[in-house]
Amino acid sequence: MLTRKPIYPGVIELNFQAGEVLGCNVYLVYDQDEWLLIDIGYEETVEDFVEIIRLIDFPLSRCKTVVATHADVDHIQGLAKIKQILKTTATGHPNAVQPLRTGDTLVTLAEIKAQNLHLTMPPVEIEHEVNDGDILRVGKLELEVWHTPGHTNSQLAFRHGDLLLSGDNIYRDGCIGAIAAHHGSDIKAFIQSLERIRDSDVKWLAPSHGPIFAKDNDFLNRTIDRVRGYLQMADFGTLAESWPLMDQWDDEVAKGILPEGLAGS
């Protein structure tokens, strides 16, 4: 058996526990022998994570559920497999139910033809739907469910005391979860979710990728300001609400304006 290495009372991150990064962050939340998982990652690493759980002496039969933070393949490709091994249920936001039930490779980002990315997405049933304000109970421990859309429309975060299991909302380097229209991204909603995290009194953020870090409002404000700028950038296509350059172009065309020093004919 291995000595447990919790990152916070009642919370173990399985990559940190293993001493090596196997995939996305997988959080085991527990009280005594009862426990649940938040995310599981790719199918190929499921058995590695199960072995870690065995080695830190959690009875496999005591897994209450496996929670999907959202419906992206790098978080939940192994969900059907882990459910079968643990004989447990899956939990997620209502917006995650259809793409997971159907194994939708487009919405889950399992297939990106332009990059020759073709991953399997095993269909999986979500037995328990949760939404903002719900409580997940593990023994006497309580996780408050936050619906934090933006990265996807199914993105969830979970509060436990001073810790927020913050999903793909923000990482320690100021990056955020990928913005892509076809898996439910929404820039305005993302800003609101980041503002909610900033305005909360949580002290620590435990993201779905990378290291745990202290919440810092100045840091969050810089990210929020950057993301707000995306609303007026052509880079983000249909997710942007305007492109000010085109208003300038309209005006310059009407007035016949060219850059100084450029000889028009």
Rank of each mutant, 00 (worst) to 15 (best):
K64D: 13
L37R: 13
D104W: 06
R4H: 03
L141F: 01
A178D: 12
F158W: 11
V11W: 02
D173I: 07
G174A: 06
F236V: 00
T91L: 03
I56A: 04
E44N: 10
Q232C: 01
T152E: 07
V138I: 05
L36H: 08
S154H: 11
W243Y: 14
Q98H: 12
I52L: 02
H147P: 10
S265G: 12
I197G: 01
V202P: 14
D186F: 05
Q84D: 14
F158G: 10
C24R: 00
D201H: 09
A263T: 13
A96H: 06
H147I: 07
G41R: 00
V26R: 05
T65N: 11
P59G: 05
G177V: 02
L109D: 14
D216C: 07
S208Y: 04
A157D: 04
G229W: 00
G264P: 12
R196G: 10
H75V: 12
I179E: 03
G19I: 04
G19W: 04
G41K: 02
G174H: 04
R228M: 07
V202A: 13
S154I: 08
N25R: 14
G167F: 09
L239T: 03
G184S: 01
I38D: 02
R226Y: 06
L164Y: 10
G184V: 02
D250L: 02
E144N: 11
I76T: 07
F213A: 07
W243E: 07
M121D: 05
E51T: 15
I126Q: 03
Q84R: 13
R62A: 13
N153M: 03
T148E: 00
D251K: 08
T108K: 01
R159L: 11
Y171M: 08
S61G: 14
H160V: 15
S61Q: 12
L36M: 09
H151T: 09
N116I: 08
F190H: 13
T89F: 04
A18S: 15
I170E: 01
V26N: 13
D247F: 11
E51W: 03
P6Q: 00
T69M: 01
Y30V: 06
E34A: 14
R172N: 13
H147S: 14
L119K: 13
L37Y: 05
E241D: 07
K87D: 03
T120M: 02
G256C: 03
E144L: 12
A96Y: 00
P94T: 11
P9A: 01
G150Y: 01
S61A: 15
D48V: 04
T120S: 09
I176N: 06
I224Y: 05
T89K: 15
A71R: 03
I197E: 02
P6L: 02
E142V: 02
L194W: 03
W204H: 14
T105Y: 04
G261Q: 06
G174W: 01
W35E: 01
F190L: 14
H183I: 13
L194A: 09
D251W: 01
E127F: 10
F158Q: 10
V138M: 01
D132A: 05
A68R: 00
L239Q: 03
H183M: 10
K113Y: 10
L55K: 15
A90V: 11
Y27I: 06
R159A: 08
D173R: 05
P244V: 00
L2P: 08
L60G: 11
Y171F: 14
A90D: 02
I38M: 06
